[in-house]
Structures are given as C-alpha cells and as structure tokens.
C-alpha cells in the first residue's frame, strides 16, 4: 500500500487511492468480513476463561461492540457539559 501511496504522490492533483469512494467501501466490507470470520471462529477453539461470563458465546466481540457504542455516546453527552470555546482560558488572563 505504501508503494501505491508513493506512486500517487508523484502527480499531485491525481485522485488519491483514498479519494476513491469505491476503495473506502472495499475497506468497510473488509472490516465486515473480518468481523464475521472472528464471530464464527468461536466454534473452533478452546476457550480459556477466568470467570463464568467470559465463556458466553463471542463474549469479547459483543462486549467490544457494545462498550464502544456506549463510549461514543457517553463522550457525546459529556461534551455537552464540558465543551467551551477554543480560547476559553485565554480571555481571562
């Protein structure tokens, strides 16, 4: 990918690999595919559990997804309370 990037750089105004919507879609589909494979991988290995709940089916995948969504929504809510203008502190001094 790096070589590709460099080739593109030679002609500056040329459309970059990442500018192409189709390539972005490809990346997104790759993520979907990897996730599907990892989800199904649950059937094929022996789990090493510390507790009881981490033996649940695809615990790590589901926990990772749910907590990430929660994290982003939580951050959006926190931002309402915490965000001030860019030079909030500068004006006072």
């Amino acid at each position: 990918m790096e070589n590709k990037v460099q080739e593109d750089y030679k002609v500056k105004d040329e459309l970059h690999w990442f500018d192409n919507k189709r390539n972005i879609r490809r990346i997104i589909y790759t993520i979907y595919a990897i996730c599907a494979v990892l989800f199904l991988a649950e059937f094929f290995y022996h789990k090493h559990a510390f507790f009881s709940f981490d033996t649940w089916f695809s615990f790590y995948a589901i926990y990772g997804f749910i907590m990430s969504v929660g994290l982003v929504i939580g951050a959006k809510v926190i931002r309402i309370f915490l965000m001030r203008r860019e030079h909030y502190y500068d004006s006072s001094s």
Partner: peptide
C-alpha cells in the same frame, strides 16, 4: 474479536 468489533 474485541478490537475488530470495536472498529466495527
């Protein structure tokens, strides 16, 4: 699994 589903 943890990381890729977070990325998802």
């Amino acid at each position: 699994q943890l990381l890729m589903f977070a990325a998802l």
